[in-house]
């Protein structure tokens, strides 16, 4: 009897506590502020990479609870190994055979976002240049006349995307890489090489195009967007750390796309200032050069990558062809159908 009384008394106390809790007015659910997550991003001194500077300077990363460290590099050659080793969380490596082979051999890196794309626009970002005198003399009146030409290209580019684009130019005229000579050139000397006739044609990108065209002895012969329209030409790649934490990956993507929206406002004083500061270029030059398109919707042109991958495979540079699922991470961006 005594025990029953004690249990009943205990139950009354519990009931009272529960009722009290139920009657307590409930405010906003307490959302604990997540601790800022550190994300290390490998960046290159290219204008396109200034999008990350915009995201950083405008506080888009902070808004997403991210502390982003932009780690500068001179070349993207080491990005994939550093991503795989966890030294970097995000980077924009050149899409070389190494990227695909790393995945084929078990490396956990994936394309998460587009960086630049060959979107047809008023001005070209990637072109083939020729001497004005040659063009005026009718030397390159048709693409077939490229046969036998020496084409200057960046060293990293011959077996990468620039080499692929040059191959597309050649295919238009029924030519192949065997019909021309590709010569590796440092960007700093490429203009001199063209002017001094060491090369006949030059594969060039901004801001070098604007610099070279300023001399008035060089002209644009062909534009990359004509042979590879809408090709996604560079990417943001996530390493294992961000692929394992999709929420952080989504927050990074949101901040990135906020920066892309600001970038799409064009050459506003603020954007010009940030791009110039980031790339170490004069403000006047940044205003003059053609800015790469960065897709607003965060969509990657998968078909263009598959075609490029097949080209690499045909060159014997790939261990095997990958399916899109293997190299593309989805779910970080809501891409409209």
């Amino acid at each position: 009897m005594q025990i029953t009384y004690r249990i009943a008394k205990y139950l009354k106390v519990v009931l009272a506590v529960l009722l009290l809790a139920a009657c307590t007015p409930i405010g906003e659910p307490a959302t604990p502020t997540p601790a800022p997550v550190l994300v290390r991003v490998g960046v290159l001194p290219f204008m396109s990479n200034a999008i990350l500077k915009i995201a950083d300077a405008e506080g888009f990363f902070v808004e997403q609870g991210l502390t982003v460290e932009l780690v500068p590099f001179r070349s993207s050659n080491d990005f994939v190994p550093l991503l795989l080793q966890g030294e970097l969380d995000v980077a924009a490596p050149a899409l070389t055979a190494g990227f695909f082979n790393a995945i084929a051999r078990g490396g956990n890196v994936k394309i998460a976002l587009p960086l630049t794309a060959f979107t047809p626009q008023d001005c070209p970002v990637v072109v083939v240049l020729a001497r004005k005198s040659d063009v005026e003399a009718g030397k390159y009146a048709s693409p077939a006349q490229w046969k036998g030409a020496t084409i200057g290209i960046s060293l990293a580019g011959a077996q990468g995307l620039p080499g692929y684009v040059v191959d597309l130019f050649l295919r238009q005229a029924g030519l192949t890489a065997q019909d021309v000579t590709l010569t590796a050139l440092d960007p700093a000397v490429q203009g001199e090489a063209l002017r001094s006739q060491q090369v006949d044609l030059l594969y060039a990108a901004e801001p070098w195009i604007t610099r070279l065209l300023a001399g008035d002895d060089v002209v644009v012969l062909s534009r990359a967007e004509d042979v590879a329209p809408d090709l996604t030409s560079s990417f943001m790649v996530y390493g294992p750390s961000l692929l394992a934490e999709p929420e952080v990956g989504r927050r990074f993507a949101t901040a990135y796309l906020n920066a892309v929206r600001q970038y799409h406002e064009g050459k506003t004083p603020r954007n010009v200032e940030l791009v110039a500061e980031y790339a170490g270029l004069e403000t006047e030059l940044v205003q003059q050069v053609c800015w790469s398109d960065i897709p607003l919707d965060g969509a990657v042109n998968v078909d263009s990558i598959m075609l490029y991958q097949e080209w690499l495979h045909d060159l014997g540079l790939l261990d095997r062809l990958l399916s899109a699922d293997e190299f593309l991470a989805t779910g970080f961006v809501e891409v409209p159908e």
Binding site: A97, G98, L155, Q159, L182, T183, A184, L185, D186
Partner: peptide, 20 residues
Amino acid sequence: MLSAREGLGALIWLAWQTLR
């Protein structure tokens, strides 16, 4: 490695580029 498309240095460069 810096500028050639042939030679042992170019092979090293290509091997690293292809991660072979």
